[in-house]
Amino acid sequence: MFGLNLDITGELAAFFILAVCAITGAVMALNLTRVIHSVLSLAFTFISLAGLYVLLGAEFAAFVQVLVYVGAVTILMIFGIMMTRHDHESQERQRPLTEALAGIGCLALFGILFFTIRGTDFPAPAGALPEDNVGELGRLIFSGFAIPFELMSVLLTVAFVGAVMLARREEDDLP
């Protein structure tokens, strides 16, 4: 069922190492009690995922992953931690019923996904990705996906303005 007749290639070994790193980072992020440690171990997961993207031939996506996730989102979360207080996180109230139900639900979802993935035989890829990945990607974005690209820039601007408007201290509220 597990398809263990794979021969050990470099790609398999690299995939295995990076996958173990990614899962370790995610599990530690959920288990650590201090928020800053969770954020840092999730940054580790994001870096491992960037390695996996390189392995899959998506160099530009890996670059963007490091730039945006490790560089921007993680730092944003650290700023969020700095601006709020997390003193009471040590005496976190335990909610065993909720946690057990959520765990059962997630395990059931994973089981369904796992058996579906293992039960499907994927057809072999016909052809390969172009060698000059980044150039082709740029051509594709600025020709076929030009309008979604512009909409994405509008979305980013709106989100930026909205975040500034939200977090601005309102003078009327102050006594």
């Binding site: 700023f79 969020g80 939200l166």
Partner: peptide, 12 residues
């Protein structure tokens, strides 16, 4: 990734 970045900014 862009949508996720926007979501993180508004969320924080």
């Amino acid at each position: 990734i862009s949508v996720a970045a926007a979501e993180a900014a508004v969320g924080v």
